[in-house]
Design a protein around this nucleic acid. Structure first.
Lengths: 141, 141
DNA sequence: TTGTATGCAAAAGGTTTGCAATGAT
DNA sequence: ATCATTGCAAACCTTTTGCATACAA
């Protein structure tokens, strides 16, 4: 959607009590700089050249932490691999059920929906995102 | 959310040109009967006792086909395993970012949203579902 | 200094593939 | 009869774990 500011994500981490290692900084910067919902492995591939010591394991573990802390989230990518994005401005997703592509979409009219009552469930809603499902152009043919 | 009618799902498959094998029927029935977003493996475990010849591979392949055909869909379950649900009445999801639980939620007021324009993108939207993210009761403590 | 975070190597899962046999239409 | 679908077994990939070491606070 829109690139995030790595510095902002870092201070968010600090506030959450996460130690800022060079590995975490690299992952935050990489995540903030792309909007294509990368997998843990793709992030590793991107980061590794500039930080040769980093291990794949760390990327997995850091992403897990970031999600827990609310700094990143997994996106609903149909398929068997987890995909991630940094938190940021509200936006929504278009998912093609045929080719599994997942694209960001802005829909200003849908950014301030009334939240449903969770009184009975006592779940604290912090954010939301709409997943639009259908068929993309390439698959429409 | 609500249980679906297996017969309806079957006729949907027929219309899509999918052959109705006993394996597919069993998977449709199993999917229609639960609302907990099972993994392919859990479905296999459920079906196998009553259809001993079925293989895990087939469950994976059938689910893939069903998603392609629009009869089932994958749900945004944070975590590294794909989860599925049969298509059915519109509903939404609550996802806990801490424990990764995913619960259905009804929100009648949000079931007829104006769809965003996809003119520029030419994506055909067929359905949507809102993913509410936050913290569940157990994790709030 | 203290406890969190990392790297390594290995294990554990989950998912996919090729190919021959089966079965729905 | 024809072509999609299945089962098997193996390959492939992704993700997780245990443990000793390193490092942020």
């Amino acid at each position: 959607m829109k690139r995030q500011d790595p510095a902002e994500l870092e201070s968010l981490c600090r506030r959450k009590g996460l130690r800022l290692t060079s590995q975490r900084k690299a992952i935050l910067t990489a995540l903030a700089g792309r909007s294509d919902h990368p997998t843990a492995d793709r992030l590793y591939d991107q980061i590794q050249p500039g930080l040769p010591e980093i291990s794949r394991t760390t990327v997995y573990r850091v992403l897990e932490k970031l999600v827990e802390a609310g700094v990143a989230r997994t996106v609903s990518h149909p398929g068997s691999v987890s995909r991630f994005e940094a938190i940021g401005p509200r936006h929504h997703h278009l998912a093609c059920r045929r080719c599994s592509s997942l694209t960001d979409i802005a829909a200003p009219g849908l950014n301030e929906l009334p939240l449903p009552s969770t009184r009975g469930l006592s779940f604290r809603i912090e954010d939301y995102s709409i997943l639009f499902m259908g068929i993309c152009t390439e698959c429409k043919e």
